[in-house]
Design a protein around this nucleic acid. Structure first.
Lengths: 337, 337
DNA sequence: CTGTTAGCGCTTTCAT
DNA sequence: ATGAAAGCGCTAACAG
């Protein structure tokens, strides 16, 4: 069917090796020979088989990514950074999307083993200790993005500091009754997202530091999603003594909070201040105050670390922290007294 | 290093073929032998190499996707459908993101040739005739999603009908001065998106059918994006005799229109009706009236067509049209008189 | 500079 | 039911 390197060699009247050298731009071919081979390649419409190439080389020039809900704006933006960095390095990107616990476990177990890729990027998923061990056994270079695990390299932000930053800002605006809306605390059945948990920690620390005792009833957790956050927030805002400000662990959840405020006819920011996290695209549109993190860059940096590790697996464990920044917009204001 | 099939065979004291049969669940192995081999596999932590397997089989169990701006909500949703359908079929997904004209051309040319994948899905990009020819020459099964090309299978919606549907709705609400905001008309330098152009056609047809002459100054085109649409809309709305309703070729652009209205202190829908296209996630949040198309499903159906073609390349050219639906929300209303 | 050859790890006949 | 052997298309080491 399709021409092989052997066909090219035969027609051009040269050896296999020569054709291979031409394909790979080796300098050890005379100009004349090279041209002849090139002509035959064009004539035969020959395309080197990537699979055969990978096989022979022992590398796939492919990087695999496991991401939960890759449809979430923050994840998409990280993926975009990954793709861009990978493409400029000549690597292809294969994506595994994970929306159930079972698939998370399967992917984490099987993808590294399949040897389809030269490296693996895991987004927003923290492998458990036993999974880390299994991962290391495969010897496949791995980098975590927006997640942390002992003895695995990664790029993240300081989520605790982020949570504190958001909360301190609300405190500085005079708020004392500050609520928190975040993801479900990881349990057996869930994904082990850690960022929401850390942001909660930062929230609590900031409160304590300001002499405000954190109240349990001000902290609500649910599945990540606009609708879930809306329900949670509505509940929270109907408390006898409701919060005057709400910190949502993500912009998506903050949108749910905004909806809840609308449901209850609470004016934002006059009666309720709202702050989110991530600074996804739509945050600007909504005028949402939020904590910005560099999503695109996290993908880029993750790829850099990974490629370094692929080139030299002995590279010492690197962990990179990306900066965060408070973006004050219109959903927060000094508390009315 | 890692154990190979040969190691397993040796340790288990069986032939290569037997191990292969066990791996592939062939029934031609005795229960006893199978168990012995399985034990050795576990003991050696053997994982069959996917690359070697692909190579030997002559198939990669991978599908490639070329998508422009895969960060756009509508594209992401299609990809999600693709990934889901692929995963359940045992295929992996490799993604190429295209954000420049040059990369579009390169991908269209190189990806099919590289033989990295058993099939190719092209999203929202219409190959030119010469590109179609080159594509067909590679004999790689291809399916278009949200794009059309002669002699290539695909799944799309009827964009002309969609444009007409949106426009007729505005007309039915009493609007006569209806503007259109869409993508740049394809030129040498751009991507050849066709959907916006077709929606414009539908818009014009509906207008004519209602006896309203389309006015050139009511039709604006720019790069796809919220900001660009905002600028375009602002300009349009500052006309001496501005439109009372605006049809945006996508929800993202409709958001820009909404911003423009805000800029000019025009109340929506009281002073201006706005309708979008796609019904992306955020449309519901914004209460945006729009034309819904089945994005996720378009990915699923594209995969189905593609897998069918991979299984049997002689499958006759299939083209599938997905339904559209008007979703009336809060950004449109009967014109005040 | 160039041709030849030995694998890479697996699937698949083909015998047995 | 199972072992042996022939590739799949390419790269790289080796010999000229």
């Amino acid at each position: 069917m399709a021409a092989t390197i052997r066909d090219v060699a035969r027609v051009a009247g040269v050896g296999l090796g020569t054709v291979s050298r031409v394909i790979n731009n080796s300098p050890l071919v005379s100009q004349a020979t090279r041209q002849r081979v090139l002509d035959v390649i064009a004539e035969l419409r020959y395309n080197p088989s990537q699979i055969a190439r990978s096989f022979s080389l022992g590398k796939t020039l492919t990087v695999a990514t496991i991401a939960p809900f890759f449809t979430r704006p923050s994840v998409v933006e990280r993926l975009r950074g990954i793709e861009a960095a990978l493409a400029s390095g000549g690597y292809a990107l294969v994506v595994f999307n994970v929306e159930t616990r079972a698939r998370r476990d399967n992917c984490l177990r099987d993808v590294p083993r399949s040897q389809r890729a030269d490296g693996l990027l895991i987004i927003s998923l923290a492998p458990q200790p036993d999974e880390v061990l299994a991962l290391q056994e495969t010897r496949l270079p791995v980098v975590l993005i927006d997640a942390y695990a002992d003895s695995l390299p990664g790029v993240t932000i300081d989520d605790v500091a982020g949570g504190a930053l958001a909360t301190e800002y609300l405190i500085a605006l005079g708020h004392r009754r500050i609520g928190f809306i975040g993801d479900l605390i990881a349990d057996e059945m869930s994904f082990n997202f850690t960022s929401s948990r850390h942001r909660l920690e930062g929230y609590q620390q900031a409160l304590v530091a300001a002499g405000i005792p954190p109240r349990d009833e001000y902290q609500r957790h649910g599945l990540h999603g606009r609708y879930e956050a809306r329900v949670l927030a509505r509940d929270l805002l109907e408390l006898p003594e409701p919060p005057t400000a709400l910190f949502a662990a993500s912009d998506t959840q903050a949108m749910g909070v905004l909806e809840a405020a609308r449901d209850l006819n609470l004016a934002v920011p006059d009666q309720l201040s709202v702050i989110g996290f991530d600074d996804i695209d739509v945050a600007e549109y909504l005028g949402l105050t939020t904590i910005r993190q560099l999503l695109f860059e996290s993908g880029e940096r993750g790829v850099e670390l990974l490629l370094k590790r692929i080139a030299n697996p002995a590279t010492k464990l690197e962990r990179e922290y990306l900066p965060i920044e408070l973006i004050a917009r219109g959903t927060t204001r000094r508390i009315a007294r």
